[in-house]
């Protein structure tokens, strides 16, 4: 815990908060616009990429991860990591059963 006292908490300038909300609103428009174009199988991937950029901005600035002790980023990172582990094993299970039987049982 790097900061020495209660007085040392990093205060993010208002300018940055307003810039971040402007980008978030812009990306919301981009999300809707992108859904109007058919990218085929990439539709979901593109939507998730834009959502992840927005999530990153919320985490870094609104939730202060950019300025806080890295310990908090590591804590958050573990949840993402184990979510990917869950997705990987669920995906392997799902598709191995699907390949053999033709239907998801």
């Amino acid at each position: 815990m790097a900061s020495g006292g209660a007085h040392d908490h990093h205060i993010i300038p208002l300018k940055i908060y307003f810039r971040v909300i402007a980008i978030l609103m812009f990306l919301t428009v981009v999300t809707v616009a992108a859904s109007r174009v058919d990218f085929g199988v990439m539709n979901t991937v593109i939507a998730m990429l834009i959502a992840s950029v927005k999530a990153g901005l919320v985490l870094a600035f609104f939730m202060h991860l950019k300025y806080d002790d890295k310990m908090y980023t590591v804590a958050f990172g573990t949840s993402v990591f184990f979510l990917l582990v869950l997705y990987f094993f669920a995906w392997v299970d799902f598709y191995t059963r699907f390949i053999h039987t033709g239907i998801v049982q």
């Binding site: 804590a75 958050f76 949840s79």
Partner: peptide, 27 residues
């Protein structure tokens, strides 16, 4: 400061469990 950091880290730990709960539905 010790109290502040403990409360904040506790909150983040709770958020990790929240992400995993919603994560199951997302997967």
């Amino acid at each position: 400061e010790h109290e502040y950091n403990a409360a904040k880290f506790g909150t983040w730990t709770f958020l990790v469990t929240e992400i995993l709960m919603f994560g199951g539905l997302f997967v």
